[in-house]
């Protein structure tokens, strides 16, 4: 049978890949996953702080996405949609396995030594040192773009808790950034 060359699919828009995956094309789905996997991985790492569990979470994300793709109304917004699924699966993991040893060191990345931005580096390190909930709230708000209500729902806490944690996180990060100047 005829096949689109892998290079051709890699150049296709998200919307086209979504349409094909929704029609049952597993190869298009794989291209879509490969395209967004690195950022989804970074997001899940930031939310769960459990890099060793991230592959499992990403697999759950992919399976949930595959099942729900035919109902996706705006295929061009698939990245944001995948982020929402990643949030749900990340917190599902945390609910399944609540016990957790806090990581002391920053999430390892290869490029740290090349990171020329002191402020950026300081923020990443500070984010890792923040209490888990404060870091989650900040990441969901500033990186994920969720509303207070959306964050509250995701974390299963009142909105007032979200507001308090976000204020704490912002204050600490601002202090950190001041120190990095």
């Amino acid at each position: 049978m005829f096949d689109a060359s892998p290079g051709a699919l890699a150049q296709a828009s998200d919307a086209l890949l979504v349409d094909r995956a929704a029609d049952g094309d597993g190869r298009a789905f794989a291209v879509l996953l490969r395209r967004h996997a690195p950022v989804l991985r970074a997001y899940v790492n930031r939310l769960t702080r459990r890099p060793s569990e991230t592959d499992d979470v990403l697999q759950e994300v992919a399976i949930a996405a595959w099942q729900a793709l035919p109902g996706l109304e705006n295929p061009e917004h698939v990245k944001a949609w995948l982020f929402r699924i990643a949030e749900r699966q990340a917190f599902a993991l945390l609910r399944r396995q609540p016990q957790h040893v806090e990581l002391d060191e920053e999430i390892p990345t290869r490029g740290d030594e090349e990171d020329r931005s002191d402020a950026r580096h300081a923020i990443r390190a500070a984010l890792t040192r923040l209490p888990e909930q404060q870091a989650q709230v900040w990441v969901l708000r500033e990186v994920g773009g969720l509303s207070y209500a959306g964050i509250a729902e995701q974390l299963g806490v009142p909105e007032s808790t979200v507001r308090g944690a976000l204020a704490q996180a912002r204050k600490k990060l601002l202090d950190t950034m001041g120190g990095a100047r």
Partner: peptide, 29 residues
């Protein structure tokens, strides 16, 4: 504002810096 400017590209920078490992995708397929 500065914090927001750092937050925006944060994931992409972490993604770019991390070693790429997509073996899970083959498993999921």
């Amino acid at each position: 504002q500065r914090l927001r400017e750092i937050a925006g590209p944060l994931l992409q920078q972490e993604a770019d810096a991390a070693a790429r490992d997509d073996r899970w995708i083959d498993e999921v397929l």
